[in-house]
Design a protein around this nucleic acid. Structure first.
Lengths: 340, 340
DNA sequence: TTGTATGCGTTATCAC
DNA sequence: GTGATAACGCATACAA
């Protein structure tokens, strides 16, 4: 039953020629006579010969695989990035190996080591929160020192020399905060996570800068810092009950959705009494009630660009020591949770 | 700069022993003397030797890679399945190569051919809508005939002999419809997609069966069939304006969310006037307003089981010709869009 | 206890 | 025009 995969050797034996003749014939080499070429090509086609990728990889020292290491895949933003990577990689004949770090430093290290031993030509990755907390990037450095190209996206670090691509999170938060201020809001809350996450820090900075630029004093009582995982609804309720606010900026959709629910439960109207803006612009923002004004991170575009940067490095012969950081501009998508 | 990956050959030359001695020493073979083993192992550790995956793959004819081909990754259900696959695969030392068919038959074929030439040990996949529409499964048959194990999940076909894993969509729809009937609903609408999608068909069947079992006549005017992609809001509005209904079953979350919005705009209350139940149970269901009673598909579990079934086949020596179809039971998650 | 030879499937160099 | 050989990195049966 098992129709064995056919190899050059099989064809050679069957047609009574040498393996190298077969190889050349299938590449349409000028060296081979028309007759033998036709014979061999016909036979190969008949038996549906396809060269073995692994053998070619070993020979060429090129796998045509890209390793993607991300914290989580059940997360709209990362998902769109993966789609972008896939899209571009496929047009260039590359496959994508996806590994999940699950926000764990150890898993990130294990996955990278696994892939670094010949399985991939380069990495695209976003750091796990654990890694950013530990602030340990030796596994990344090892990889780059081995000459394996690496592109970091979104959750990056300046402690590693490599290509990077991020959105301007600070600008995004600034723009959003400015929009709220222009609406007339003065008591603008921020719901964020711990600052060791590079993106949360940048977003907080943007928020603070917008306030400062508009002479609004920072009120630490209306800044809520939550752990990345395991959000508790209670904390939200309490925060919104005791705080006097007229707008909220959230570093992700879920915080915003929860927040809106609390506000509504307190009898307030959105956006009349309280405006909301959230980062990410995933499904939740679009379908929320009211729909959520959001800062779009352009994940798919980011993925495509990351793949393009990586493949360009992979395929360039020269060992360049110059790295670039691409910064994408976020976009404010206005919906019904703010006044326009 | 480029710290070349070290190979057995390098170690052998450096320590003036043969390659096979090094190979054996690193495997802690009894054949090798303690002295040489220690010497070699120390050296290998110092230079961080790691065997090359590709070479091992070529030798063993085993890649330790699993190919996953799915229609889309920006989709909560598929995403959870991928996570489940990853989770199990990783514990068994396998990597996951993800390819997206983008609901296209051609891309599905190309991706599979690409991976089938030695890149993976087996496939886990869910059919593209295009493939189910074309009803052409030759690419799957070719793969199985080559002896490459294949596990189909969710969107499957009985035209291919292989392991399968699905949830009992008919039962899910039946349970949901029954729940609505038990609430006292009689005018239960169904919002679904074209029947060529295996899952939509099964769900429609379950809905019809529940009605019939409870002596409720089917009213084709309150069954809305939409194309898979490119949903138009207008169609929804019109449907809900002209239909007299007291409950709605939707084959996915987005239909349900849209539906709820229309109903609310018409001044009706959920769940008092109209109940809603939707398939999938993703983020939208959880965070909708009101939160959506949903039929959970247990994607992560499905992914884990699929990976387990596949790896078991991959690693079993004997060429079994027996295939199983696992059917998972869906679960009704009751939330605020129904009365409990 | 160590080393030699062979093979995994392919390609490239060089000889015939 | 065609074929033998070596090489990619590793593992193993078999010699020594």
């Amino acid at each position: 039953m098992l129709k064995q995969k056919i190899t050059l050797k099989h064809i050679a034996k069957e047609l009574d020629v040498s393996i190298s003749t077969v190889s050349k014939a299938l590449k349409n080499s000028e060296e081979i006579s028309r007759d033998t070429k036709e014979k061999i090509q016909a036979f190969a086609k008949l038996y549906n010969y396809k060269p073995n990728n692994i053998a070619i990889s070993l020979k060429n020292k090129r796998t045509k695989n890209i390793g993607v290491v991300i914290p989580d895949i059940v997360h709209h933003f990362f998902t769109t990035v993966v789609r972008g990577i896939e899209k571009y990689a496929n047009t260039k004949g590359y496959n994508v190996i996806v590994c999940l770090s699950d926000e764990s430093f150890d898993k990130e290290v294990i996955n990278m080591e696994m892939l670094a031993n010949g399985s991939i030509d380069g990495f695209i990755m976003s750091l796990s929160s654990d890694t950013q907390l530990k602030n340990d990037y030796n596994h990344l450095k090892e990889v780059t020192e081995q000459g394996i190209p690496l592109v970091l996206f979104d959750r990056v670090t300046n402690q590693v020399n490599c290509d990077k691509i991020v959105i301007d999170d600070q600008l995004g938060a600034y723009t959003a905060t400015k929009k709220l201020i222009d609406e007339g809001r003065r008591k603008i809350a921020l719901i964020t996570t711990d600052d060791y996450l590079s993106v949360s820090k940048a977003r907080t900075d943007g928020y603070l800068k917008a306030l400062s630029d508009n002479n609004i004093e920072v009120d630490n009582n209306i800044i809520l810092r939550l752990p990345t995982m395991g959000m508790e609804e209670e904390v939200f309720k309490t925060f919104f009950e005791k705080s006097d606010i007229d707008a909220v900026l959230c570093v992700n959709e879920i915080f915003a959705i929860y927040g809106m629910r609390c506000v509504k439960e307190n009898g307030l109207k959105i956006p009349e009494d309280v405006s909301f803006i959230g980062f990410t612009d995933g499904l939740l923002s679009k379908y929320a009630n009211p729909s959520l004004t959001a800062i779009a991170q352009h994940g798919e575009k980011m993925g495509e660009l990351a793949a393009e940067m990586l493949i360009q490095k992979v395929e360039s012969e020269k060992e360049e020591e110059t790295y670039q950081t691409k910064i994408l501009e976020p976009t404010l998508i206005e919906r019904d949770s703010t006044i326009n």
